[in-house]
């Protein structure tokens, strides 16, 4: 049950390297897929899968200019390690919110 990209939500402006303009939409799209995948893995109790997904996000976010993705990935990774369902869900919620609101400017 995902929220749509609500117009009423405040936007979060992120500046990214213009050289990466072609890659960014695909990158954010993949994070939306991650969110779905993490939810599914959480449902099936596959914490290891959750952890790896979080770990990868942590490794890639900052490079694209999304330090928040790195931060959230790191939270998801450690929560998954502790099998802390609530912790994962909380971080996931924030990540989803972030992805929905983020607006990239290239400069």
């Amino acid at each position: 049950m995902r929220k749509g990209k609500g117009k009423f939500l405040d936007k979060i402006i992120v500046q990214c390297d213009p050289d990466l303009e072609d890659l960014i939409p695909g990158y954010l799209n993949n994070r939306e897929k991650d969110i779905v995948a993490i939810r599914e893995s959480l449902d099936s109790g596959d914490f290891e899968k959750v952890r790896t997904l979080g770990h990868s996000m942590k490794g890639s976010g900052g490079g694209y200019g999304f330090d928040e993705v790195t931060r959230m990935g790191s939270r998801i990774e450690s929560a998954a390690l502790a099998k802390d369902v609530e912790g994962v869900e909380e971080a996931l919620q924030e990540l989803e919110d972030y992805i929905n609101r983020v607006e990239v400017v290239f400069s």
Partner: peptide, 15 residues
């Protein structure tokens, strides 16, 4: 094995 990292690194290096 992470395609997003691969794409980013490739882009940087090609630049």
């Amino acid at each position: 094995d992470d395609s997003d990292v691969l794409a980013l690194l490739a882009k940087w290096l090609k630049d």
